[in-house]
């Protein structure tokens, strides 16, 4: 088997299969479904866990403190996921606004205070990082409160795919695979939720899932920007577009019957166009390197 396909199967397919399996347990097994918090905690853990497993497959079990600064990333995935699960356990479905502010403050504070990355020595850079993570948690929590789980998972599927392409274009192979694992797990979750719509939980995913996901996606962007090795450097706004672009899909549930066609065009085609644009512009260059 071609080495690259084998690598993709082990580093993306295997983590996605494990984590989607765990997610399916939490979502559909009656013993777990009774506890609404479990679905949220499972979502908080499973998507970042997929990326963590990718790192184990690619780089072995990461050490702490890491041998290279960027290898702190798998630990931030795990920490974000555990924080998310903790928030789910502590708040459940109560006071989502308070829960999201507390989760954002903890995640942003810890990221800005503890993370040691290149060019992150100044106080302003650390505050910026903290704010990026904190705002990411708040925005993701707001999205999850509005959208049904299947839509949220579809959105993450798109965001992860776009991010994976961008990371590949910036010569970050392992990071690209990690984003791919998140995307594939979210895709599996979206499909599972669509197939088992009747037996799936009808509530929204909560702050816990938002925290785990936001930490993973924002940290992938932050580290991707810092280790960008592309020809001219990918502008920062294009990195953030990977996450923001698919969020346009959120307008779909609000569309009236009359405006549905327009909403589908904007909400469905725009993210697809963004992803295709990223793919055409970047992957061509990234794949043409011989490895």
């Amino acid at each position: 088997m071609d080495a690259m396909i084998e690598q993709a199967m082990w580093a993306v397919g295997m983590p996605a299969a494990i984590c989607a399996g765990l997610l399916a347990l939490a979502l559909f097994v009656p013993a777990f479904r009774r506890h609404a918090v479990l679905a949220d905690a499972a979502c908080a853990l499973c998507l970042p866990l997929a990326a963590f497993i990718t790192f184990i497959v690619e780089k072995g079990l990461p050490t702490l403190p890491p041998e290279q600064k960027w290898l702190i990333l798998p630990w931030t995935f795990l920490a974000g996921g555990m924080l998310g699960a903790g928030v789910s356990g502590a708040f459940g479905t109560r006071s989502p606004s308070v829960a999201s502010v507390i989760a954002a403050a903890i995640a942003g504070g810890v990221a800005g205070w503890l993370l040691v990355l290149p060019d992150l020595d100044g106080l302003d850079a650390r505050i910026t990082l903290g704010l990026q993570v904190g705002i990411g948690v708040l925005v993701m929590a707001a999205i999850m409160r509005q959208a049904r789980p299947v839509l949220t998972c579809t959105l993450i599927w798109g965001a992860g795919a776009a991010l994976s392409l961008t990371l590949l274009a910036s010569s970050n192979i392992t990071l690209s695979l990690a984003a791919g694992a998140i995307s594939a797990t979210a895709a599996a979750a979206a499909i599972l939720l669509s197939i088992g719509a009747k037996s799936a939980p009808q509530g929204r995913l909560g702050v816990g899932a938002a925290t785990g996901l936001a930490c993973a996606l924002v940290m992938l962007v932050v580290i991707g920007v810092r280790y960008d090795n592309s020809w001219d450097g990918i502008p920062q706004w294009r990195w953030w577009m990977c996450i923001a672009g698919p969020c346009v899909m959120l307008i779909l549930p609000f569309a009236t019957t009359k405006g549905r066609v327009a909403a589908v065009l904007v909400g469905g085609l725009l993210p697809a166009a963004v992803t295709a644009w990223l793919a055409i512009e970047m992957v061509q260059d990234a794949m043409d390197v011989g490895f």
Partner: peptide, 8 residues
């Protein structure tokens, strides 16, 4: 060269 300069 860019890939080889990268974190991997």
């Amino acid at each position: 060269d860019r890939n080889l300069q990268g974190p991997d």
